[in-house]
Write a protein that binds this DNA or RNA. Structure first.
Lengths: 268, 268
DNA sequence: GCAAAAGTGTTCTTCGTACACCCATGA
DNA sequence: TCATGGGTGTACGAAGAACACTTTTGC
């Protein structure tokens, strides 16, 4: 059959989505790139993405393209900016709606169904096709902003994680160093993470009187009567007194309540 | 000459920009709407905006359309979200890149070059065409977020303003009430506004030691040796001892420095 | 003259931040 | 055994938040 063509009274730009997928391997931030198989920029690395279809939203398009090109199926894609420079694509006028997404550690390690997709450490990424370097930088800026208000860090870790992993993650995203003790206290104090040791919910930290925490800084304050594992009493079920490598998990329920209490504003 | 038409191998959506223009009359938030002169939604109110041209960016398009439809020429348009629902326009597939902008009090009062443009109080706005009610709500959410980090409030006031005006503005945007004294102190303490009384720059507040201010709250703290107009000494040039209606102005230079000192993160 | 808005300081509480030592693990 | 990383608490200073009375202006 003959090639179908589409005609309009006025010129229309093409519209694509591009997706910046962040990952964290426990030590540094990674991004997922695909190698372009066709011109333009054939052979260069680029953000996964592609042209929007007429029957899908930008969100659906980004998710589909990500799945097709990298094998990753991430449901939480966050739109952060639309790029509309006139000559950003040599073929024709292309406007790109950009998203970022967060992949779990397991995705980063296992990953790469698609042969042409690869994880790169942020500072080892090659130059990208089109204006994707710029898009990437904007995504990183947005991620830094968002982490002040959303507990996005947890989407980058496995469901159970150590406090040090969490701290390294925040340090990697924000590019600053935290005091270990202050970070630990601050995180517990919010009440949105809990010890994952036993199955029963141990109530750590105080939950009341929580206003706003300046993020800059995720550090402690005065420890206030928090129940702690007493090392003297022999813990029955775990024979080896495991005091190291304590695992924590994110408590979504408590986070939602916390946000509600604080007028939906949460600042780490 | 015959009607020119534009043809593509693959279907292309139409792309528009829409612009949410906020204003503040000293007491409540306003938005600028235009009445639609053509179908669809003829006669309804809508956000100013229109189709993008092939030789302009989305930002340029938004600025141009705003000028054409309302007579306002605002240079600071902030892109906040792109709307891509499949059926948001009955004519064809239309993707809209949305911006918000801030107009000064004088623009709100004088305004309306265009016959079909009008300012509405936020809570008195009619139902809007297309999905513009939704876009408006998203713009308001974004404005609330942004005010934590940017001194956008000042773009809504004239260059000189009273502390009460500023407070009413913040209260209108954030939907909360502040303690007058705490607000006053907090604002001066940041050092980014100064008294506009004399021409000479009076150094108000302290500029050092400024980390992060939780916004929720723009209130005071301990007053710290700030030079204040002494009411006993007769002020020479103004015969009437004017203690009320003190005007302030925004100090951009000091704001930039402040931001730099704080790693480009500013939280009110 | 009365009501409504603007101007101004102090105190207490909470939070941020700096800081040091011990224990476990693995090379 | 030595180096590295994890685990834990306290004390001080800054910032947040609550609070009342007086002066002016406009009706």
């Amino acid at each position: 059959m003959g090639k179908q063509r589409y005609t309009y009274d006025y010129p229309h730009p093409a519209v694509t989505t591009d997706c910046v997928v962040f990952g964290f391997d426990g030590h540094e931030m990674k991004i997922l790139l695909v190698e372009r198989g066709i011109e333009p920029y054939k052979g260069m690395w680029a953000l996964p993405g592609g042209f929007i279809r007429m029957d899908e939203t930008a969100e659906q398009c980004a998710q589909r393209e990500l799945q097709e090109e990298t094998g990753l199926n991430l449901s939480l894609l966050k739109q952060f900016m639309t790029f509309s420079e006139v000559n950003r694509d040599p073929r024709e006028r292309v406007i790109s709606i950009a998203f970022y997404a967060l992949a779990r550690k397991s995705d980063v390690k296992g990953g790469d169904d698609a042969a042409q997709a690869r994880w790169f450490a942020l500072n080892e990424a090659p130059r990208l096709a089109f204006d994707h370097d710029y898009i990437l930088r904007k995504a990183m800026e947005k991620l830094r902003e968002d982490i002040h208000f959303e507990p996005i860090g947890f989407d980058l870790l496995d469901s159970e994680f150590t406090m040090s992993e969490l701290q390294r993650l925040y340090e990697a995203i924000l590019g600053i160093q935290f005091d270990r003790r202050n970070f630990h206290k601050k995180m517990l104090q919010t009440g949105i993470i809990e010890e994952a040791d036993d199955d029963e919910t141990v109530f750590f930290g105080k939950n009341r009187e929580m206003r706003s925490m300046s993020i800059d800084a995720l550090f402690g304050d005065k420890a206030e009567e928090m129940p702690r594992p007493c090392p003297t009493s022999p813990n029955s079920n775990s024979r080896t007194t495991r005091r190291w490598g304590t695992k924590f998990r994110f408590n979504k329920r408590r986070y939602d309540k916390f946000k509600e209490d604080n007028n939906f504003r949460l600042e780490f």
